[in-house]
């Protein structure tokens, strides 16, 4: 059975691995031509690839989360993903198998995502309560599993907690490409429904959209992104990628589509600058990326303030127009 499955995914895996190889070759060539030292290393190619993919996926999903005021969900799922990693390592050491801890993290985080939705549906508790419960459970489970199974695990766990550029293998990169394709396709196809649910849940229901289903889809996608980002950011900082670029974009964007695009661009800046700095100064990648993202956020807050100050002086003119429209529509609709 397992051989059948592995046979079935071999061809697409090989293809994606080949693509990752191409990317690697391309970056090497670029580094060679421009004399960029860090591009000599394959692990840096993988880091840049994974970082770029995360910086598309995270804001894509995060924009819907943040504007539903569910920013905390990334944090909750990151902690359960940590439990998932612990489960994977635990099973491997007990049964002597070689399951990727990321795979168990994906499964556990998706289960947790559904648990959050179910808890809030069943108990009528506010979403932040259900998130807090799932967060604590996840971290406790992870801590317990690791403590009962200390044989070498405590050392390995650090890379999941804090992320590590050097641990991004070709398999990890392929897994990320698959996640990226999945998340991008799902969000593209369901964009209208997700937007409607995010903006006005009741009106969305009146419009015939299955709000419960889309809420679950949203949390499931978040779980996937969290696990994807975990290997480079570490669980503790993963939520930042979902939230900070989105919050930055919201400062300056007027439209939703515009803010979605802006958040992706800002996330790319944070990831590319962050990885470069972390390589140069041998700092942890996750922390560096988040600090750059926060710096970008502060920049956008200032830009937004400037924008609205300019807007106010414009408004002085349009305000009267607006009032005129408000009061004088009887005429325009009569004809």
């Amino acid at each position: 059975m397992t051989t059948l499955v592995s046979e079935a995914i071999r061809a697409p895996y090989d293809f994606l691995a080949w693509l990752v190889g191409l990317w690697s070759d391309a970056l090497y060539a670029v580094g060679d031509a421009l004399g960029i030292g860090m591009l000599e290393y394959v692990f840096m190619h993988h880091a840049f690839l994974v970082g770029t993919l995360i910086a598309v996926m995270a804001p894509l999903v995060g924009t819907f989360l943040v504007h539903r005021q569910m920013a905390l969900i990334g944090d909750a799922l990151a902690h359960t993903a940590f439990a998932g990693v612990a489960v994977g390592l635990f099973v491997n050491s007990i049964l002597g198998t070689g399951i990727s801890p990321y795979l168990t993290a994906v499964v556990v985080a998706m289960l947790a995502a559904l648990a959050i939705e179910l808890i809030s549906e069943v108990t009528d508790a506010y979403n932040d309560v259900s998130m807090a419960i799932v967060l604590s459970t996840g971290f406790a489970l992870g801590a317990v599993l690791i403590s009962v199974n200390t044989g070498g695990l405590a050392v390995g766990i650090n890379q999941y907690l804090f992320g590590n550029l050097a641990t991004v293998s070709r398999e990890n990169a392929v897994l990320l490409v698959v996640l990226f394709l999945l998340v991008s396709v799902v969000v593209t196809v369901t964009y209208k429904q997700l937007l409607y649910v995010t903006f006005d849940e009741t009106a969305a229901r009146v419009a015939g959209i299955d709000v419960t289903w889309y809420n679950r889809l949203m949390t499931t996608l978040t779980a996937l992104v969290v696990v994807g980002a975990m290997q480079i950011m570490g669980v503790i900082l993963v939520a930042a990628m979902l939230v900070v670029p989105v919050a930055a974009a919201a400062q300056v964007a007027r439209g939703f589509r515009e803010s979605l695009l802006a958040s992706v661009v800002l996330a790319q800046i944070a990831v590319l600058v962050g990885i470069t700095l972390s390589y140069r100064y041998e700092a942890t990648a996750g922390g560096t990326i988040v600090l750059v993202a926060v710096a970008v956020y502060i920049g956008m807050v200032l830009a937004g303030k400037l924008q609205s100050r300019r807007g106010v002086s414009e408004e002085a003119g349009t305000g009267s127009v607006a009032r005129e429209i408000d009061a004088g529509t009887g005429e325009s609709t009569d004809d």
Binding site: H67, T198, G255, F256
Partner: peptide
């Protein structure tokens, strides 16, 4: 705080 235009 949700950025969305009237047209959208």
């Amino acid at each position: 705080r949700m950025p969305i235009t009237v047209a959208e």
